[in-house]
Design a protein around this nucleic acid. Sequence first.
DNA 1: GATGCGGCGGTCCAAGTCGTCCACGCGCAG
DNA 2: CTGCGCGTGGACGACTTGGACCGCCGCATC
Lengths: 150, 150
Amino acid sequence: MDDLDRRIINELRLNGRATYAELGRQVGLSASAVHERVGKLESSGVITGYHATVDPSSIGLGVTALVGIQPSDNAEDNEVAVKLGELVEVESCWAVAGDEAFVVKVRVPTVDELERTLGRLRRIDGVARTRTTVVLSTRFEGRPNTATAE
Amino acid sequence: MDDLDRRIINELRLNGRATYAELGRQVGLSASAVHERVGKLESSGVITGYHATVDPSSIGLGVTALVGIQPSDNAEDNEVAVKLGELVEVESCWAVAGDEAFVVKVRVPTVDELERTLGRLRRIDGVARTRTTVVLSTRFEGRPNTATAE
DNA sequence: GATGCGGCGGTCCAAGTCGTCCACGCGCAG
DNA sequence: CTGCGCGTGGACGACTTGGACCGCCGCATC
């Protein structure tokens, strides 16, 4: 992973649909060379995917919340994480330090649906309590951090 | 926004580099028709971008934390949010209900750097206290929620 | 109820660009 | 010298992208 790789990655983080030819122009390589480098970055697990980002409220997901998951005494973290992953409305799941086992981000259409989701979360084996923080507005999200990448 | 749009969006959320021809095959339209639909989805703000997702530790960002931002009494939220956005290590920023004004997700190379980042956060005008939750592992993140999208 | 019309949204087509593969060249280490 | 890593350039099929055209639907008119 050299400087050229970092520049390619950076470009792809900003514009995931950039063509190889375009990337080549940006970094001063032929499209073939870029193609090969990107292929290696993908197969070595540095680039894990490409995704369109969508305005959540446009697709009927206007309510976001961060939920801390307090485990019960006998909880097995990995099992709980799998169960959390089975709920489609759970978009992200972080295992954290502190008295909560996980913090998850959920995205649902309405507060009614949020209530139902919290019910589903509490019903998971190993979940003792939940602590919900409602998101009022998302100022920005998933911004590419290029601190070390360029 | 009809069912075809939703299927196209869904596909692009899973594979942001899908070609128009490919999308056309999936949904049963010509590439031209898909091209036009995607163009409209982009210009109407439903699709806000395309991004490669990168394994953070591969690019030297091995430490993640969620930080609650408690505002000082005279804080002006919008100004604080702008300042938060100026720190590249702040990847996401949500304005939340509760006694914290924001929760941000930061991504840094090391815990040393985390300490420095927390210092920078506290030095922002309008920030009284921070409450940091260190992420031990990211189980999943930014997963496309297709609950209403398909 | 027919008829005509206009716009939306699709197909088809064609020119240009791009992706993808392969042969080859260059620099370098063993 | 040889092999290897990594690049270039070329070739060809696939894709993009815009335009011409067409069918359908709703609507106003007769």
